[in-house]
C-alpha cells in the first residue's frame, strides 16, 4: 500500500501508545472493578481509607463525663438528660487542650428549637412544654432566668 496511507496509521498508533503509557502511570493500582461489579463498584479502593480517616469532632457525653462528672450526674436527674452536652457546648474536638475553643451557644434560638410551642397533634413536638416566643419575654435571653442544667422551676435564677 502507499506510504501516505501508512503514515497517519502510525501516528494514530503512536498517540494511542502515549495515552496508554500515561494511563499506566496516572491511574492508581487500586482503581478498578470491585465487589459490586462495573456498574456500582468501579472505584479507587484507597478512597475508603481516606473517608475513614476523617477527624471525629463530636465525642459524646461519656467523653465529657471523664472530666465533668459532676455536671454529667446533676443533669442526669433532669429532663434535659436526653440532650448531648455538645449540642449546646459545641464539638469537643481539641477542647481539653484548648478550653477556650468551645463555642457555647446560650442563645434564645437554641432553646426555641424545642420550646417554641407548635400544636402538631401527630408529632412528639406537641408534648414538649413550650412558649409563644413573641409573647413570652420577647427579645430576652432564656438563660437570664432559666438554668438549662436545671430546667425545673426550682432552678430559676
Amino acid at each position: 500500500m502507499k506510504n501516505h496511507v501508512w503514515r497517519p496509521l502510525f501516528a494514530v498508533i503512536g498517540m494511542a501508545a502515549v495515552v496508554l503509557v500515561i494511563r499506566a502511570f496516572y491511574v492508581p493500582k487500586d482503581f478498578g472493578v470491585h465487589e459490586r461489579g462495573y456498574m456500582y463498584g468501579w472505584y479507587r479502593a484507597g478512597n475508603i481509607e481516606d473517608w475513614k480517616n476523617v477527624k471525629v469532632k463530636y465525642q459524646g457525653r461519656e467523653y465529657c463525663k471523664t472530666c465533668h462528672s459532676d455536671k454529667y450526674e446533676s443533669i442526669e436527674k433532669t429532663p434535659h438528660a436526653i440532650i448531648q452536652c455538645e449540642n449546646c457546648h459545641g464539638p469537643a474536638l481539641g477542647h481539653p487542650e484548648n478550653p477556650a475553643k468551645l463555642a457555647i451557644d446560650k442563645s434564645r434560638g437554641l432553646c426555641l428549637r424545642c420550646h417554641s410551642y407548635l400544636p402538631y397533634p401527630t408529632s412528639n413536638r406537641a408534648n414538649i412544654r413550650g412558649i409563644d416566643p413573641d409573647r413570652h419575654n420577647a427579645g430576652i435571653e432564656c438563660v437570664m432566668c432559666h438554668n438549662p442544667h436545671k430546667p425545673s422551676p426550682e432552678g430559676m435564677k
Binding site: V56, K57, E86, N87, G90, R113, C114, S123, R125
Partner: peptide
C-alpha cells in the same frame, strides 16, 4: 422527631 434540628447542626459541624 420534634424538628429541633440538632441533627443538622451536628452534621454540618462534623
Amino acid at each position: 422527631c420534634v424538628g429541633c434540628g440538632f441533627c443538622v447542626k451536628a452534621c454540618k459541624n462534623e
